[in-house]
């Protein structure tokens, strides 16, 4: 479908946040899903569409008050995030209203993303979606721990919005006040984001997660921001601490394969539930061409190849 650029915002030296007017896609989308965007303006190069995970939903101004909707967390005495009041149009979450579009977050790495970076407000964009199997938020009593490597943070903000909606952090209205109290007292029980990158410029969306009430652990390989080293390093110790407090962490990760491998190892070590979002080169994006497979459960004979575009991009960590 043909959509229109609402805003294209450069948020770091290489990263852009593109807002697209596409209510139809936004209405169906859930965190972890993606869209395929045409980047060739009808020419033969770059030939294939490029997959981008949905970064966030977007609402137009004047779509009504966010306190509409009976299940709104904001109508239960929770302070509403200030940015939603301040901005005329806003990303994030609003109960009871239909979103008007989606945002994607991308780094300029090649011809396709350079083209997207060049798009101005009003430009037409051809996209299909929402596609794929996203994150599932099933367990009622867990502490979400999000782990992102670099641009892997993109789908996790949409997920964070959804977590916020579901749990209305930090206070949890549950039938068990002691559990709620315990949770709100303990900073470990807040939702966490472990955000890693090569260098400070790779660390994106900090403010957005903080506004949602997430606590952040940051590391960079060159030490230019946060702790020096890989983000997986502080993760294990942190999870151990959580578990010793009687909390039940659940992991949601997106980033480069080595990081996903490490997160899966940690999950296995501590017997934690979790989901990982994977990337692979794609052609069709709809499950037809079998091009984007990964061997999710390794070492089977014959190998069990799963399509990232349909069985994924989000896979359960236990099989990974």
């Amino acid at each position: 479908m043909i959509t229109e650029v609402v805003e294209n915002c450069q948020i770091s030296s290489q990263a852009f946040r593109l807002t697209l007017d596409c209510a139809e896609i936004a209405a169906k989308a859930y965190p972890g899903q993606f869209v395929m965007i045409r980047v060739n303006q009808g020419r033969a190069a770059p030939l294939l569409r490029r997959p981008f995970s949905i970064h966030r939903l977007w609402w137009t101004c004047g779509a009504g008050s966010h306190s509409q909707g009976q299940s709104s967390p904001f109508s239960q005495g929770q302070p509403s995030p200030g940015y939603q009041d301040r901005q005329q149009s806003s990303p994030g979450s609003r109960y009871g209203q239909q979103p008007s579009g989606i945002q994607i977050l991308f780094r300029v790495v090649g011809e396709g993303t350079a083209y997207l970076a060049s798009l101005a407000k009003g430009a037409k964009v051809d996209l299909i979606g929402p596609l794929g199997h996203g994150f599932e938020l099933k367990e009622p009593d867990y502490c979400p721990v999000l782990i992102a490597g670099g641009i892997g943070v993109a789908p996790l903000l949409f997920l964070a919005d959804r977590i916020k909606e579901k749990n209305s952090w930090p206070a949890v209205a549950t039938a068990n006040p002691s559990a709620a109290e315990k949770k709100s007292d303990n900073p470990l029980a807040r939702p966490w984001l472990f955000l890693g990158g090569k260098t400070a410029g790779d660390i994106l969306c900090r403010d957005e997660f903080q506004r949602l009430g997430f606590s952040l652990a940051i590391s960079t390989e060159d030490g230019s921001l946060g702790q020096k080293g890989l983000i997986s390093e502080p993760l294990a110790a942190f999870l151990e601490q959580m578990i010793s407090c009687g909390l039940k962490p659940s992991l949601f990760a997106c980033g480069p394969i080595p990081l996903m491998d490490r997160v899966a190892e940690i999950a296995w070590q501590y017997r934690l539930s979790g989901q990982v979002s994977l990337e692979q080169r794609m052609a069709c994006g709809v499950g037809a061409c079998m091009g984007c497979v990964v061997e999710v459960v390794r070492g089977k004979n014959p190998p069990d190849y799963k399509r990232v575009c349909t069985e994924g991009p989000v896979f359960d960590i236990s099989g990974f």
Partner: peptide
Amino acid sequence: AGNPPPRLVETPAGLLNSI
């Protein structure tokens, strides 16, 4: 089962596949 990944690469005006 098909071939191991990577199975795809885009080339100028083309798609190379090894499904």
